[in-house]
Design a protein around this nucleic acid. Structure first.
Lengths: 207, 207, 207, 207
DNA sequence: TATGAATGAGAGTTCATTCAT
DNA sequence: TATGAATGAACTCTCATTCAT
């Protein structure tokens, strides 16, 4: 098996200038991924777009994979934050309201940077998806499972593991697909309808 | 926007020897995609694995993309066949039985060559997913919509377009995820349970 | 030193069909040289344009170089014929008339297939010019020298070798350049003027 | 019509090390053109001979054509310098002396790197000759025309354009041919005789 | 630390030539 | 004899990565 390239940043960049350089590099990587796709994202171009030299890039990242990993992480954090907040907000709500809000949050999360999201979920060679992009789902999954656990008296008896899998997978697929492949049709009204339908799907499934 | 590489085969390979070469190339491509992923699939490696020279590869395919496209097409045809057959079989059945059979068929389809399916759906730069892999879904989608249309008196009034989107997307996501990410847990029993749950999800949604 | 590829045809092609194939190949080569230049003239394209298979090409010619050599030879023969005829016609004429006719003939010769001529004289890697294209000049040169020898009493005393060199080189350069680089300006009138000037150049030089 | 490959250098190479690399590459290209001809001049061989990696080659030149263009330019500059100096020196001289000096200069110029000159003028596919090598002639041509213009009272009335064409083309052909094809016979004495004859050719033509 | 010139393995691709049919 | 599938050396060019300055 081929050794995987390292994906951890090289130093912790405590100093301020360093931090700025690192951010610029991650941002440049994200922008190039969006505009040109994964294979066109060469280290030289990234460094150029970030306004630093290749040498500097390698001072902060051990290689291209690490940069992409950083982008994935940053994007993942943004998504997770949205989802986490939603799940917190929803903890005390009855199921239907909760599901509705979660679905709205899922759509909101997918709208953060849809094209980047698409690139990250579609063009990640090997390493990518399983290791990093999926972490996102996995946290979401755990949080949702916890919600179900706390509200288990509101619906039929069911294997929580399984129910969480069904719900999270469906919601993620619907919102992902809606935002990425049908965003042009996603008017405010359509948005409402979609949330209605998805909510119905989940709620009736759990009942 | 960058011009996309051509994906049409170069000749149609009428002679017998040619046909064997073409098949060997497509098969080799599929195998390498599975074992090494998209970016490691170089034309030389493909030719090598197929037991032919690079020259022969270029006699039949204008480049790597065309080979991958051929793999996508071949795999897509296999999947579509399964789905199409299921939808035909199911045309006259009442909803619950129909949905159950369709879900089983979806799982069966995803089991044809799951790793290949994963690679094809995850690592397709540009060309791939949107253009070809999605055609699959799109036919499935149309067929399912037709089923709903024919059985519209069995369930609540709903925008068929939207309902088809919700159902197909959910089923596809659940079966895809189950087969690809959790296949080790997918014992016969678990399989049954999953079909039960997915059927419940869809049927109750439509009612 | 690298061995030069063979340039002799493989067989003498006595049969009629063979002759036709050989001609088609030479003609196809000439046409492709004209339209696409030397490096784009691949054996497969030549064979294709000639309406035969590559295999057949190699039945009659040992390689690409031999084909080009055949084109050079054919073209050279046509040129030489024009020049030879002119020199014969002119043998008995006094110098000024003779020179005038020779220059007109040189222009006529360059007009046979100017673009082919250009390609042959400009894009011939290694082998080319020195070996074959120059033969042309060398026969012309000998014939002209003979003319001078026969008419030595009509002009000043001069080393015939040298005089022939000066005259042939100048005439060839002027006609070549006029036809290839300035053909658009070469109206009938301009043509006359050019012949006048070139004649003056040579005649006064010899006097 | 096929798009021509780019011939402009990629960077201007400000640093010292860069400059050395660029020079080494141009020099290596020139040497290989001389010893092996245009088609054998592969980028890898050029880089190898220059003692740098292919990568470096492509850092400064977009391809082989650009390297050759640089060689043409460098060589052209050297030639032009000789010719330009001669024409300046000669500006005030009477015609016969002027022509004699110009012819000597033309020979001198052709002797700078005769084999390179031959390759550059004979084997330039497409791009080469017409675009760059001819510029040389075109400047020479303009300068000579200016000389004629300034001295028009010293010779018969004649279309300056045409006279310049005849003179420059003839001188260039004679010196080119003498240096390239007959250099072994070009003793000092033969040299003198050649200059005499060429001068006679031009002077009497103009009178 | 930052720079960017240099590296070179390796990818994509072409094409003269051969040879089984 | 004719065919055209197959070959593979050779070529152009890119890009992740290093290292002298």
């Amino acid at each position: 098996m081929a050794r995987k390239p390292p994906t951890k940043p090289r130093k912790h960049a405590t100093q301020q200038r360093s931090r700025a350089t690192v951010d610029a590099l991650i941002e440049a990587t994200a922008r190039i991924l969006v505009t040109d796709g994964f294979d066109k994202a060469s280290t030289n171009r990234i460094a150029g777009k970030a306004g630093v030299s290749v040498g500097s890039l390698y001072q902060y990242f051990p290689g291209k994979e690490a940069l992409v990993a950083a982008v994935v992480e940053r994007h993942g954090n943004e998504l997770t934050q949205v989802v986490r907040r939603a799940l917190t907000d929803v903890a005390a709500l009855p199921m239907e309201q909760a599901v509705r809000k979660l679905i709205a949050a899922a759509i909101e999360a997918h709208r953060i940077d849809p094209t980047l999201h698409r690139v990250l979920s579609e063009q990640m060679p090997r390493t990518g998806k399983s290791e990093s992009m999926e972490m996102l789902s996995s946290e979401t999954y755990a949080l949702f499972r916890a919600y179900l656990d706390a509200h288990r008296d509101e619906f039929r008896q069911v294997d929580l593991e399984l129910a969480a899998f069904v719900c999270v997978t469906s919601i993620e697929a619907l919102t992902h697909s809606a935002v990425l492949h049908h965003s042009e049709q996603l008017t405010d009204e359509a948005f409402e309808v979609l949330v209605d339908e998805a909510t119905r799907l989940i709620v009736r499934y759990l009942q």
